[in-house]
Design a protein around this nucleic acid. Sequence first.
DNA 1: TTGTCGGCCGATCGCCGACAA
DNA 2: TTGTCGGCGATCGGCCGACAA
Lengths: 230, 230
Amino acid sequence: VDAQLWMACAGSMCSVPPVGAAVYYFPQGHAEQASTAVVDLSAARVAALVPCRVTAVRFMADAESDEVFAKICLVPLCPGEAVVDVDEAAAAGGGEAQQQVDRPKPASFAKTLTQSDANNGGGFSVPRFCAETIFPELDYSIEPPLQYVYAKDVHGVEWKFRHIYRGTPRRHLLTTGWSGFVNQKKLLAGDSIVFMRSEGGDVHVGIRRAKRGFCGIGGDDDGLSSLPAW
Amino acid sequence: VDAQLWMACAGSMCSVPPVGAAVYYFPQGHAEQASTAVVDLSAARVAALVPCRVTAVRFMADAESDEVFAKICLVPLCPGEAVVDVDEAAAAGGGEAQQQVDRPKPASFAKTLTQSDANNGGGFSVPRFCAETIFPELDYSIEPPLQYVYAKDVHGVEWKFRHIYRGTPRRHLLTTGWSGFVNQKKLLAGDSIVFMRSEGGDVHVGIRRAKRGFCGIGGDDDGLSSLPAW
DNA sequence: TTGTCGGCCGATCGCCGACAA
DNA sequence: TTGTCGGCGATCGGCCGACAA
């Protein structure tokens, strides 16, 4: 998965250590995230945290849900081994993927889907900022202003959206192509969509599913989530 | 899975040995059916066929495709162990599932789906024999004769079909409910559907997918497949 | 600026008898 | 007896501006 799009989907709260950096591995946290039955590590005499070195990082996305995650390879530090700081490791380069992350972040925009956006048979209200910053420049001399936006998802699949500027007052909308995207990705109101403009000008699209946990905590973002992702 | 429906779906060409029976196990055949890479058994010094005793039989169906299969537990015969014939084992009882198989087969009917049956937006032409033998008795005094048929699939899920007797000349049709069934089960022209009437009068429905192999051999049944499955 | 609504038009679904194999 | 076809009415998808938050 493209590292830039990955970062845009993961959001600004997420940071990934560079290859070579020294980090702590928390077995208990790992066990709790594992989907199968929780293992009682206290009985297994495992250290609560293990100093490790990052040997590899891969940016990935789930084939079905499009949700992004990272595969990080860790090797326990030998006693007395030199500890490399995160910043030092980043400065040292640390692999192609890491270099991509270090480049200036391209323009991206995240919006939480409203009921109208997710409704079957509806379109997508494009915030003005997104239309003007992320999408290709629209020709306002034709009436109504209209173009097709092509956007690649995390799998490299290209989606085609009809982008029109219409209504009174005028607003940007995605119409044809949008409902198919919503259905295929099984998006619901509350999920977020991320548009990103790469350096070459290509448009990319990713999604960020709403947390549908049991308790209320850790739930939705606040209103700020509809601001630019950078 | 209900043993009677299982048998109706598997068809009359299929026989399953009873528990206790002595059979031969063919490692090569097993390896060839395994989906992963073919193992070269000749290098592993495995006997071509192994005398075994059946210790358990389970009738099952794939959760996605509804295709039926049997899980048969085998134990190698000890040298000199008494060999029990299939017929003897069947006579000896051999478990609940086996007893169900031995009961007189309930009425069932298999039909290969035509293009019109599988067409989206179309209904299902019910052969007269099926309608009169398998479905509940239709009240011909009302105009048009109409009822709803409820049928359970191999998973116990109940499907509702509108059954009408209409047209000139008159014929039996399944309309409302049919296309949903076709879509959910991903049925195509050439696949077969099996209707069965249990002893209690309940209607069951199963499917038999067409073999879509590479070469022509081992392909479709001949025209006889549209005859009653018994 | 943008979320939601009702209107409306066209496409599709799906039920129908006609007809022929 | 039953497979396929064209017709046609109902439903639904989806594009639109109006309006208000």
